[in-house]
Design a protein around this nucleic acid. Structure first.
Length: 404
DNA sequence: TCTGGGGTCCTAGGACCC
DNA sequence: TCTGGGGTCCTAGGACCC
């Protein structure tokens, strides 16, 4: 039987900020977009959560439940640095590891420990390593179970600093009392549909005729739901040497104010397209499908995509394609947000282009990328996007942070 | 001064080819 | 000329996750 361990860092971004800056410890803080934009809370410290601050809340709402809430600008460099340390520690315990997000990993412990007790021992060692090497202020919740899904459910049962187990002795109870939406894969929409079918608990989902689920949700998804209801998950965790390739890259941006102005929209798409191109080149990807997306004032959206004959990593080209997709579109209401990106990616390694024409373009881009990498986003950029909101420096010089 | 930004995966339907 | 099936590619839309 399998043994899977899931680690979930508690209030990650906010706690890392408190770790880096002792003055923030013990205080309610939130990570969010720059103040003044139409941002939401991206992460909240334990102190803020106790006051009722939740991830996804907008600024005024958060201030209302927690008047002394301090907003901090997020610093991805800092989080990535800690995440790398965290991953390096986790790797010591299993070579079968899935880095699920910036603050979560799954470890396959099957064949490495004799039983659940062995996994508990590993979990304790791991927690101790994290405390020693990152700092005891940052805690994590660990879940141990027979598969990924239930391990994640387990780690969610006690926060912060938890260690929870789901195995044969308690799985029936868990399936009986757990909220449907506590299962990764079941969100609010699905919950409503299942409620309408008379399904309120995971046990009921598991006992529901699978043919009926397949009829309503399709053969594949129906089968998966039925298995979820039984606490079954066959998803494997691959070896550390198998790198998962990125499948899609894109950027979206919410405008300071809703607008009908096509020029402003196209300008923003150009900026975002350049950002996408730069990231594609930096990571040695090219994409063959370009997508563009608009969100209207009422929060509904529309999108278009087109598949190209050739692959590209050129930001200006991505912008041109995006604009061509939008050509026939009407603007029935003002636009709130736009997005653009590339899919159907291939990873290239560091090959150089073959044709002379391409070579020249390639050298130009390399020079531009090098400057932007050093001095921050959009130091060099198409003239059209000069003197606009997105030109502020992002990144730039960052000294390694001191922790503990 | 209502509701961010980064992604993944699934389904349905139409076009097209053999 | 009419008919059908299978497979693949593409677009569009949506749900969900952190």
């Amino acid at each position: 039987m399998r043994i899977v361990l899931h680690i979930d860092m508690n209030s990650y971004f906010a706690t890392v900020e408190q770790l880096a800056n002792p003055f923030l410890r013990g205080k309610p803080i939130a990570i969010g977009g720059s103040v003044g934009t139409r941002g939401v809370v991206v992460a909240a410290s334990m102190e803020a959560k106790q006051m009722g601050v939740k991830v996804g809340m907008n600024h005024p709402e958060a201030i209302q439940v927690c008047p002394h809430l301090q907003f901090i600008d997020g610093d991805p460099t800092k989080y990535q640095f800690i995440t790398q340390t965290f991953i390096d520690i986790a790797k010591r315990y299993s070579e079968y590891i899935d880095v699920y997000s910036v603050d979560e990993v799954f470890l396959e412990l099957t064949d490495l420990v004799p039983d659940i007790q062995g996994a508990i021992h590993i979990a304790k060692l791991l927690k101790q390593d994290l405390a020693n090497e990152i700092g005891s202020y940052l805690t994590c919740s660990v879940g141990i179970a027979r598969n990924r899904m239930m391990a994640k459910v387990a780690s969610n049962m006690k926060k912060p600093d938890g260690l929870s187990i789901i195995d044969e002795t308690n799985i029936k109870e868990v399936l009986d009392w757990i909220e449907l939406t506590d299962i990764p894969g079941i969100g609010p929409r699905l919950k409503v549909r299942l409620f309408d079918m008379g399904i309120r608990t995971l046990s009921q989902l598991g006992n529901h005729p699978v043919t009926n689920l397949q009829r309503v949700f399709g053969p594949n998804y129906g089968t998966m739901l039925s298995e979820m209801g039984k606490g079954i998950d066959h998803t494997t965790i691959s070896h550390i040497s198998e790198v998962a390739l990125t499948k899609s890259m894109g950027h979206t941006y919410t405008l300071k104010q809703d607008t009908y102005n096509r020029d402003e929209i196209y300008n923003t798409i150009l900026k975002l397209g350049e950002k996408v191109g730069r990231r594609l080149r930096r990571d040695h990807y090219q994409g063959r499908m370009i997508w563009v997306w608009l969100r209207w004032a009422d929060f509904s959206g529309t999108n278009g995509r087109v598949t190209l004959k050739q692959y590209t990593d050129n930001g200006y080209f991505i912008y041109k394609v995006a604009v061509s997709i939008m050509e026939g579109w009407d603007f029935p209401q003002p636009i709130r947000a736009v997005g653009v990106g590339a899919r159907l990616l291939i990873h290239q390694g560091k090959q150089l282009p073959i044709f002379e024409q391409d070579k020249k373009q390639h050298r130009l881009q390399q020079a531009q990328d090098a400057i932007n990498d050093r001095y921050g986003e959009f130091t060099i950029k198409p003239a059209r996007i000069m003197h606009t909101g997105l030109t502020r420096k992002i990144g730039g010089f960052k000294e390694p942070h001191q922790f503990k």
